[in-house]
């Protein structure tokens, strides 16, 4: 290898090899390709020494970054990103610079990338185009999700309105119980929240509460507002309202099982309720909650056949029959609401 023409080899490889000197300048080893002279016209070509400028050029930034690597005299090499610069003739040079330690000397190699850069660029191009496609897709998905959310919200509002209109159909026939369903719905929802039930269950209880007496539409209006006690036949008509309500609601495709809750809201834990005489946990929890809320609101409110009994009496009733007529967990939650959380049915009634 003694007759190996190193300078000629560097020229053939289209690279510039330089040594970093103690004064910070770069000493060219061998000859340089023509592009180097165009790119660095200020290089002292006779001495082959390149003095760096103000510290902000690409080469200087790179050399600064490899200072540690050189100081530690590490093996291998460090390579920069590609950098594109326009030479004094207006030609674009795409370059890459590497640093290595060789026999204790700090060596810098600048290489003109040519076709290898195009391959590298193609890889990046494809990756970034994929990112752009992904972004565009995510944007479309986000827009459509938002559209769907708005549509669902609109449908939900329409459903709420329909349910409230349904509730009014009963209340206009029975002014004494006007607002009863809304108050029961509010109390039932508060009990469900107190019991830490899921949002969906809370919502289903509320919606069922709003129309739980829809079946009373089949009861003659004069019976609903009758001031005195009901006879057996009349009471049987009243007792049919959960079944009628269920029949009205069962074919409506609500997002919740409202017809079932309405159907069971007069069932009691001991099986003494109506219309099916169900008992215990055969009665769904939502109906057990609605039952308690219904009793408390009804007792606390004025009725055509009696004055309001008050909330204390109402709470006494559910506590007394906790486990018999009413679910004890529901009773506890309801009592807690009034005694600990300050739930105010009167306020709800105004």
């Amino acid at each position: 290898m003694t007759d190996f023409d190193m300078a000629g080899f560097f020229a053939a490889m289209n690279i510039v090899v330089m040594e970093r000197l103690g004064d910070g300048s770069l000493q060219v080893i061998g000859t340089t390709p023509h592009w180097f002279g165009q790119l660095y016209p200020n290089v002292d070509m006779e001495g082959g020494r390149l003095r760096l400028e103000d510290g902000s050029s690409f080469l200087e930034i790179f050399i600064d970054e490899v200072a540690d690597f050189w100081r530690k005299n590490e093996t291998g090499r460090l390579t920069s990103d590609a950098w594109t610069e326009t030479d004094s003739l207006g030609n674009e040079c795409i370059l890459e610079v590497s640093a290595t330690c060789f026999e204790g000397r700090k060596i810098v190699v600048i290489e003109s990338l040519g076709d290898s850069f195009k391959k590298r660029q193609t890889v990046f191009q494809k990756a970034r185009e994929t990112f752009l496609d992904k972004e565009a897709l995510e944007k479309v998905v986000a827009e459509r999700t938002e559209d769907l959310r708005k549509t669902t919200e609109d449908l939900r509002k329409a459903l709420d309105a329909i349910v409230h209109v349904l509730a009014l159909t009963v209340e206009v026939r029975d002014p004494y119980t006007a607002g009863h369903q809304r108050r029961v719905a509010n109390l039932a929802r508060a009990i469900a929240v107190e019991m830490d039930l899921s949002e969906t269950v809370v919502e289903s209880i509320y919606m069922a509460g709003v129309i739980h007496d829809i079946g009373k539409i089949s009861v003659p209006a004069e019976l609903l507002s009758k001031p005195g006690p009901l006879n057996e036949n009349e009471f049987n008509l009243i007792k049919a309202h959960p079944q009628v309500g269920c029949d009205i609601l069962k074919d409506i495709d609500f997002p919740w099982d409202i017809s079932r809750i309405v159907h069971q809201h007069h069932e009691k834990m001991d099986g003494s309720g109506y219309p099916q005489g169900m008992s215990g946990e055969h009665i769904i929890l939502e109906a057990r909650i609605l039952m308690v809320a219904d009793v408390v609101e009804a007792m606390a409110s004025h009725r055509p056949y009696r004055p309001a009994l008050g909330i204390e009496k109402a709470l006494e009733e559910i506590k007394k029959n906790s486990g018999l007529s009413y679910d004890p967990d529901v009773v506890d939650a309801c009592v807690n609401l009034f005694s600990e959380k300050g739930y105010n049915l009167e306020q709800e009634m105004t």
Binding site: A82, W83, E85, T86, Q121, L132
Partner: peptide, 12 residues
């Protein structure tokens, strides 16, 4: 046409 930049491109 989108042509991605690789590394740095320096102009004056």
């Amino acid at each position: 046409k989108y042509l991605t930049t690789v590394g740095v491109k320096i102009d004056k």
